[in-house]
């Protein structure tokens, strides 16, 4: 038994060593490419330059106003997209007829590239935060609606019968039976929806805007301030990862 535990510990230790070794090799390869000038000068800057640029960004006040704007847009998008998604998901999931009639449209529309709708959203909402929020809302809506519709169909029929035998009305059924039973699919929808909402807002900012984290990335690109572009990209990835981690934590809660 102890032998098995020791060998498992040895295996896990080797895996960690392999991961660390891989990271070191990647870091050295990056530095070698940066120092060699094989690519255009400055395209692959030394990681120390990127680190300095990141520090510059994180210590500048203007940077935070851009991040705040992007996070605010993403937050509003999630509230609107998730709210609409829950309402539509409930309607489709509760009625077999509605689900069969309309869900195929959602199912096949969901994976289409949403970014192509951006010109319409720009025409409708302008180049300000409105079009970014609309883009994020559209992105967040589909995973939430599909997740909730599927979740409603999996609600335990015993719970529904109990609700009916207590003569609960439609609103009471939704409040007392469906919504508590739907916490896991809503959490899953949020997990998928938050990620795509952040990406939607950032892409809309990158394509056309005058503020926000996406705008900063494009500004650094057009000014050829490459270390700053990398630094802003690192922050964008960190924001997306942090959002996913927060939701993943939330997703685990219902199971506890």
């Amino acid at each position: 038994m102890d032998q098995a535990r020791l060998s498992a510990r040895h295996f896990l230790g080797s895996v960690t060593a392999l991961r660390v070794a891989t990271l070191i090799v990647l870091f050295l390869a990056w530095e070698a490419v940066a120092a060699s000038g094989w690519l255009f000068e400055g395209v692959v800057p030394s990681s120390f330059k990127i680190g300095a640029a990141l520090w510059d960004l994180l210590t500048s006040g203007a940077f935070y106003s851009n991040i705040e704007l992007t996070l605010g847009e993403a937050a509003i998008s999630v509230v609107l997209g998730a709210g609409a998604g829950i309402a539509v998901g409930l309607a489709l999931g509760r009625s077999r007829f509605a689900g069969t009639a309309f869900e195929p449209y959602l199912h096949y529309l969901a994976p289409t590239p949403k970014i192509v709708f951006l010109p319409i959203l720009l025409v409708l909402f302008g180049i300000g935060p409105g079009s970014k929020i609309a883009m994020g809302t559209l992105s967040c809506f589909f995973p939430m609606a599909l997740s909730v519709a599927s979740g409603v169909r999996q609600v335990d029929p015993v719970l529904l019968r109990v609700g009916h035998s207590f003569n609960l009305g439609r609103v009471a059924m939704i409040r007392k039976i469906y919504l508590p039973a739907l916490v896991p699919p809503i959490a899953t929808g949020l997990k998928l929806g938050l990620g795509v909402a952040i990406i939607g807002c950032l892409l809309a900012e990158i394509k056309m805007s005058n503020r926000g984290l996406g705008f900063l990335i494009m500004q650094y690109y057009s000014q050829f301030r490459i270390p700053y572009m990398y630094a802003a990209l690192i922050v964008a990835f960190a924001v997306a990862a942090l959002g996913n981690a927060l939701i993943a934590r939330f997703v685990r809660l219902p199971g506890r």
Partner: peptide, 21 residues
């Protein structure tokens, strides 16, 4: 787990980097 993280990462945001390279 690295591949799974890579799959969930917003890779499309890297397009300015690919434009430069």
């Amino acid at each position: 787990s690295w591949v799974a993280t890579f799959a969930a990462a917003p890779l499309v945001l890297l397009y300015p980097l690919f434009l430069v390279i």
